[in-house]
Design a protein around this nucleic acid. Sequence first.
DNA 1: TCCTTACATTGATGGTTGTCAATGTACGAA
DNA 2: TTCGTACATTGACAACCATCAATGTAAGGA
Lengths: 120, 120
Amino acid sequence: MSRSNPLVVTDDSVVACCSPLSESALSDGEAREAASIFGALADPVRLRMLSLIASETEVCSCALEGPLEKSQPTISHHTRILAEAGLIEGEKRGRWTWWHVVPGQLNHVARILTVSSLHS
Amino acid sequence: MSRSNPLVVTDDSVVACCSPLSESALSDGEAREAASIFGALADPVRLRMLSLIASETEVCSCALEGPLEKSQPTISHHTRILAEAGLIEGEKRGRWTWWHVVPGQLNHVARILTVSSLHS
DNA sequence: TCCTTACATTGATGGTTGTCAATGTACGAA
DNA sequence: TTCGTACATTGACAACCATCAATGTAAGGA
């Protein structure tokens, strides 16, 4: 049996866990929270959207329709899901909505995975 | 406009990309591949299953039914999805199947996210 | 050869999700 | 105020997914 650092997620931080194996499993609530974020990343259109937004400091919704080749309601649907997962944030200025990534949330999610694989 | 490192995934490595912005978006194929892995992580039961397996060097399928409170076919369904995503591997010995995590794949996925957020 | 055990597969079902046409809303320009 | 534009919302539909009962398979033990 290994004594690796299991997956442990708290509200907004990830900790390398030192608890006994009996406490190593993700709780139901923690797993649901993390799964909903992974769910937001589990779509090719949303991943390409996220990479488009990440490649600039700000991107307007109207600049996403073209590259992603999806209808305007579909773009709006996907930006909403990414925003609800805390991965992007939008700001309305005039008639346009400008989106930018939330790097802290991306790192948060990344650490959920790396911590768990320290025992390699 | 930032000159950040966009999301770039190759077959089994992640590279901090230096290409112009016009090439910064994930390709359709790259996005589909990454999305399918995130899809495997987008379920609370599978995340708890993964953390259970990651907390030991090896876990038998029969040791997952109890903690996860799911039927045997459901457990079998989820181990299959995690395995097809390359996140775990199974080995049959006698009547039992022993599962272990593939840490390389977890780190691979984690780097997809961290690389993209370097521009913080 | 039976019987039990560990796991996979099949089939069915209810819930979720991606997509878009149609419509609503709110802002700016004329 | 009227019109066009940027985006959100609604409603509908097809595809996908999580779940489990029933059944299949294969390995050990008696």
